[in-house]
Design a protein around this nucleic acid. Structure first.
Lengths: 199, 199
DNA sequence: GCAAAAAAACCGTCTGGACGGTATGTTTTG
DNA sequence: CAAAACATACCGTCCAGACGGTTTTTTTGC
């Protein structure tokens, strides 16, 4: 069902809108995300934008969805084949975050996520939903302290990257990752505890 | 007769303004931080607010300063007496973050910091400045992978707290902290040090 | 095939409201 | 009384969204 050749390509426009919205947020800050800016960047009129996304929220929702899907896919791909590997999911999570190169626009999407998470409780909740779903799926391997710590460190890394903190230098990052890998290898495994997360 | 306690107390007003600004950000999101909202919450007029803080930026700057100072003091207090303890600063950093109880308004300030960090490169830079200054002061103990990891995990914990993620439940947090303490004790580095029950 | 009709894609303008900031009072304090 | 500490009224700007029109694409009727 590929799109037949046509002059009009609404799907591409939609994609461009999302893309431009992400770029605006990352490069110019959340306050730069106005319908007019997005429309201009994407070379459409505001009317055109509103035709595809019925309101600013719809646009942001689309962007959020897109980013989460992307991250989800990345993590999925980074999963070890061995299904019972300890902290399997969390290790993949960390690997994806660690592999992000902020100079590649495509990979800056995570920054978008971060910004949205911290600015709006609504997206916080949706993100937590995703994490908890994945955690539930990998309950056998990823409810350990090690797993939690790996994910926490990943989040920290990610935040550090965003702000260009002192721990985001390549050397520091390499050190940290080596440390975490080692940590994992020495097998600091403990009993996992059943408990509900939640808000 | 009834001494109208018209007691003018500009300092208290200023403090109230900062306090309300923080509350608004944490509870209702960054977008809720408007001069009108802050003024209303603090029971002053907008003119009154602008008398004390000449513009929105001044208010935010004041808030930022206040939060950083608070955190700085907390970390200072959490420092182990033993000056050569490995990751001394980073451990204190983690301890402070871990001790934060989001249900206590006073301690939700850090969330403010986080939000500001992620939303504005300017505050990012100022925060990095603080971290790097401290890191330099504790260069002998806190440039190790362990130290970096502890701080990264602290940042993750802190972000998780903000969003109420699955790793912010008391039990999960206890696990993680125990794990990190243990991590520290088994020491990737040199001699360990006695750690007292923080706070 | 091929118009005519319908639908989708897209544009430019307008408006109402929110918000930061100013200008100008009015009260309190020293 | 003068300065500081407030309040009230108002202005300019920006922005989300509405609205009506125009062009392009698809569907329908014959």
């Amino acid at each position: 069902m590929n799109r037949p050749q046509r002059k009009n390509n609404p799907d591409a426009v939609r994609a461009r809108l999302i893309e431009c919205a992400a770029r605006l947020i990352v490069d110019d800050g959340l306050s730069a995300l106005t319908l007019e800016n997005v429309a201009r960047e994407a070379a459409v009129s505001k009317g055109g934008l509103l035709h595809h996304y019925h309101g600013k929220n719809a646009l942001i929702d689309g962007l959020f969805e897109e980013v989460v899907d992307w991250f989800d896919g990345q993590v999925e791909d980074a999963l070890e084949p061995e299904e019972t590997a300890p902290a399997r999911f969390s290790k993949a999570y960390l690997r994806v975050v660690a592999a992000i190169d902020m100079s590649v626009p495509e990979e800056r999407r995570l920054a978008v996520l971060m910004l949205m998470l911290s600015s709006d409780p609504h997206y916080c909740a949706r993100w937590n939903q995703w994490v908890e779903a994945r955690l539930q799926r990998h309950a056998k391997t990823d409810l350990t302290p090690l797993a939690r710590t790996l994910r926490l460190a990943a989040d920290g890394l990610w935040l550090s990257d965003l702000g260009g903190g002192p721990d985001s230098s390549p050397s520091a990052r390499r050190e940290i990752l080596a440390f975490l890998e080692d940590l994992d290898a020495t097998g600091a495994m403990s009993a996992n505890s059943p408990h509900e997360g939640g808000q």
